[in-house]
Every structure is written in structure tokens, then in C-alpha cells.
């Protein structure tokens, strides 16, 4: 009854509250952890030390070349029709403004289509995007490409309504993408409330003038590290079940939800197996990725380094969509693999997480799909995830100790049993 033993140990036993407490110590000590900062590297050193003290095997860092974008001071001052400091956050990779800022009249649009239809109005203007919230995958296109679309039509800067379904006047940052063929212009997110206010002003025909100042700059690339630890397999140590989350975060909030929770339930999966004295037949490997927030560069470079051994990767799992109350697992793989994993998820009745869904996995483990490696992620009640995502609200107060225990139980049972089965999961 190993599955029940694991769940009881995590939820009711001496590991109760351990995941939350470990994450709280980590985030309270280091705060947010943007790639390129010494603080992130200090937090990785701390983790390597903690993982060794936890008795895990093969604890080490693996170097990753990462972008080094620095925010600097920034502001967006509404000058007309009244002076008002718009609540904003520059977007990752954005260029800065000249020291005196960019002062220009603004137009407000609600979609890329509207921008195209009003292209004659764009030259020399700051474009404000007040796109409605649809869903993250849909709405995030505005954060990603507002600058490119604006610059293509001669705009001088873009301000994007934060990609969030709910707001208490909080700006949300995130990465954005330039095109090599289009002039790079400054771009930032503004609070939902401010985007809506500007849209109301524009609808009334009111002239809007904004002064945008951003000191953002991109420094030469630097070196960060993926953080790796293992429970070595007893029979097939070369074969790997990988669990993961990312350790880097944005430079606002504390990165407790995104993705401290995912990183620390992954540590807990290995830690619980070690604490219970279990030894699966194949190796359980935990990776805390670096550089996820700037485009998944840590996981991509890990894949490039290890893909020659893809035939030995049994399952890759990532948690990067919250560690709220879990209800199951989402998996990608062959039909027979899904059947097998569904049987494992059925063991999760004691933590009420028996939902099994065929679906997508996360960015950081997606690279393995082309090699046929099954992938998976955690299903949890993350309906409010984007309330906090990439904002100052991403703190330990979002996390709940019991929910994190339940997530850790799910993560441990699934990864341990797959690692301990007599055979690897079948592939197409």
C-alpha cells in the first residue's frame, strides 16, 4: 500500500506542512528572482545546499545562458486631460525611452483589428491596448506583440492592459517579443482600471497625452543554472522520471505561486520518497528550471544537453499552473501510456484527485514531445491564478499549506509509481 502510505505521510504525517514551510523560508529569504540577478544565483546556491542536506543524490547545478534584462525606474504620466500617474510595469525585453521620456498623444484600441482599421491615426502616437480579457492564451498575444504591431504602423510606444481576469489596480508584467524587422519601441502594461479609464476618455473624444519614461535596458547574456537533484534508481538508474517547476520569477512579487509552488512540490516528491526510505527501480530526477519567465531558456538548454538520452526518459512532468487544491493529472502520450497513467491516478482517491485528462503539458517539458516522451502536469483549482500572475500579489499569502500537501502527494505518488514499475511507459 505504498500509495496510501505516501499520501498519509504527506498530508497527515511528519511531512505535513513541510512543502509550504520550505517555500516560505525560501521566498521570505530571497524574494523575487529575475534571471541575471545575483539574488537568483544566491537562491540557487541555497537550494543546492538544502537539497544536499535533505540527503538527495547527485545534487548539482547545470549552467544555462540567460538574457539579462534590467527594468530600471519607470513611469507613465498622464498629462492631459489631467495629471495622473498611470499604474504600470515595463515588459520584459522592452527597450527604454530617452532620458526625457516620450511624450505623445495616445489613441486607445480594443484589438489588433481596430488598430489596423485606424492605422492612419497611429504615426507618432502612443497606442493603448484595452483588449478585453478572454483567456490567458488568447489575451497574452497583446502583451507579446503590441510593440511590434504599433511600431509597424509608426507608433512610438505601446501600453497594454494587464493580462489579468481581475484587478485591484495592479499591473502585471511579462515577456514580450520584438521582430528583427521592426523598430523596437518601449512597451509596458498598465492596470486594467487605467486602461478602461483611458478607453472611456477616448470614447468621449477627449485628447489624451502621456509621458512615458523607462530606463529599461538589456545587458550582455549571463550564466544561471538549472538546479538538479535525484533519488537514484535501484535497477535502472540510467532511466529517468523527471518532475519539475521553475525557480526563477519576475522582479515583482515573490514568485511564490509562479512557480515556487511547482518547484517545491517537485522537491517534495523526491524528499518524501527519501524520507520514507523508498528506492524506485529507476531514477527520480527533480529539475528546478531557470529562465522560464524569459522564454523557457533553462528547460530548452537542458533538453539540448540531454536529448541524446531521450530514450531513457520515461516521463517528464511540470507544475507551472498553480499548486492550489489539486484534482488530478493531465497527461500526453500514447493511448496505452494514458491507460496506465489513468490507473495510477485512480490511486489518488484519498486526496480526492482522481481526475485524469488527456491534454497538454507545460512549456518546460514540451520539448520532449517530439521524441515521444510522455509528459504531464498537475490539475488544480487555479481559477484565480491570473489574478496574481506576474504581479506584486504573487506572495506566500496566495499559497495554502494543506493544498500544497495535497499537490505534493499527487506529484509524489504519480512520479514514484511510474519510476518503480517493472517497465518504462510504452511509446508510439
Amino acid at each position: 500500500d505504498v500509495a496510501n502510505k505516501i499520501m498519509d505521510f504527506v498530508v497527515n504525517g511528519s511531512a505535513k506542512g513541510q512543502t509550504y514551510n520550505r517555500l516560505a523560508l525560501f521566498t521570505d529569504t530571497f524574494g523575487n528572482r529575475l534571471v541575471g540577478t545575483q539574488n537568483l544565483e544566491n537562491s540557487i546556491d541555497f537550494m543546492l545546499d538544502q537539497l544536499k542536506k535533505d540527503g538527495l543524490d547527485n545534487v548539482h547545478g547545470e549552467n544555462v545562458t540567460v538574457p539579462n534584462w534590467v527594468r530600471g525606474n519607470e513611469s507613465a504620466m498622464l498629462l492631459e486631460p489631467r495629471r495622473y500617474n498611470l499604474i504600470m510595469l515595463g515588459l520584459g525585453s522592452s527597450v527604454g525611452t530617452p532620458p526625457e521620456g516620450i511624450t505623445a498623444e495616445a489613441i486607445v484600441v480594443s484589438s489588433f483589428d481596430e488598430l489596423t482599421n485606424r492605422s492612419s491615426e497611429v504615426p507618432g502616437k502612443i497606442v493603448v491596448f484595452n483588449q478585453p480579457w478572454v483567456s490567458y492564451p488568447v489575451s497574452v498575444a497583446y502583451r507579446d506583440f503590441a510593440a511590434v504591431h504599433t511600431a509597424q504602423l509608426g507608433g512610438v510606444a505601446s501600453l497594454v492592459r494587464s493580462i489579468a481576469g481581475f484587478s485591484i489596480h495592479s499591473p502585471h508584467t511579462g515577456w514580450q517579443d520584438y521582430s528583427d524587422k521592426v523598430k523596437k519601441i518601449p512597451t509596458a502594461c498598465i492596470a486594467v482600471e487605467d486602461a478602461e479609464m483611458l478607453a472611456r476618455m477616448a470614447a468621449r473624444g477627449t485628447k489624451i497625452v502621456i509621458q512615458l519614461k523607462m530606463q529599461a535596458k538589456t545587458l550582455p547574456q549571463s550564466i544561471s543554472r538549472n538546479t538538479v537533484a535525484e533519488v537514484a534508481g535501484s535497477v535502472h538508474p540510467e532511466q529517468v522520471v523527471l518532475v519539475s517547476g521553475h525557480l526563477d520569477s519576475w522582479d515583482v512579487g515573490q514568485g511564490a505561486m509562479d512557480d515556487g509552488g511547482g518547484a517545491f512540490i517537485s522537491w517534495q516528491a523526491l524528499s518524501v520518497v527519501r524520507q520514507l526510505g523508498l528506492r524506485p527501480k529507476r531514477t527520480m530526477r527533480m529539475v528546478m528550471w531557470t529562465g522560464e519567465e524569459v522564454g523557457g531558456v533553462g528547460s530548452l538548454q537542458y533538453y539540448q544537453r540531454h536529448k541524446a538520452n531521450a530514450s531513457n526518459y520515461d516521463l517528464v512532468m511540470e507544475s507551472d499552473m498553480g499548486t492550489f487544491t489539486p484534482y488530478g493529472i493531465e497527461m500526453r502520450g500514447s493511448n496505452d501510456t494514458l491507460e496506465i497513467l489513468k490507473s495510477i491516478v485512480e490511486l489518488l482517491g484519498p486526496v480526492n484527485a482522481t481526475t485524469f485528462r488527456k491534454g497538454e503539458d507545460g512549456l518546460d517539458v514540451s520539448y520532449w514531445e517530439k521524441d515521444g516522451v510522455p509528459g504531464g502536469s498537475l490539475l488544480n483549482h487555479n481559477e484565480h491564478y491570473f489574478w496574481f500572475h506576474h504581479s506584486d500579489g504573487d506572495t506566500m499569502s496566495v499559497q495554502d499549506p494543506h493544498s500544497m500537501d495535497l499537490c505534493a502527494a499527487v506529484w509524489t505518488v504519480v512520479s514514484y509509481i511510474v519510476a518503480d514499475l517493472d517497465n518504462m511507459l510504452p511509446r508510439n
Binding site: 500500500d1 505504498v2 500509495a3 496510501n4 541524446a308 531521450a310 530514450s311 496505452d336 491507460e339 496506465i340 490507473s343 495510477i344 490511486l347 521524441d371 515521444g372 505518488v413 509509481i417 518503480d420 514499475l421 517493472d422 517497465n423 518504462m424 510504452p426 511509446r427
Partner: peptide, 22 residues
């Protein structure tokens, strides 16, 4: 590099193996 392919595995047997973890 060719990947593992196991055409001869017994799915029912694997399910019974998993049930033993309960």
C-alpha cells in the same frame, strides 16, 4: 536515436501491478 518501443507488453498485467501500490 531510436526510442523504446514495447509492442509485446501486457497492459492488463501493468494495471494489476499498479493496483498493488494501493
Amino acid at each position: 536515436k531510436s526510442l523504446l518501443k514495447r509492442p509485446n507488453y501486457d497492459l492488463q498485467k501493468i494495471k494489476e501491478e499498479i493496483a498493488s501500490y494501493k
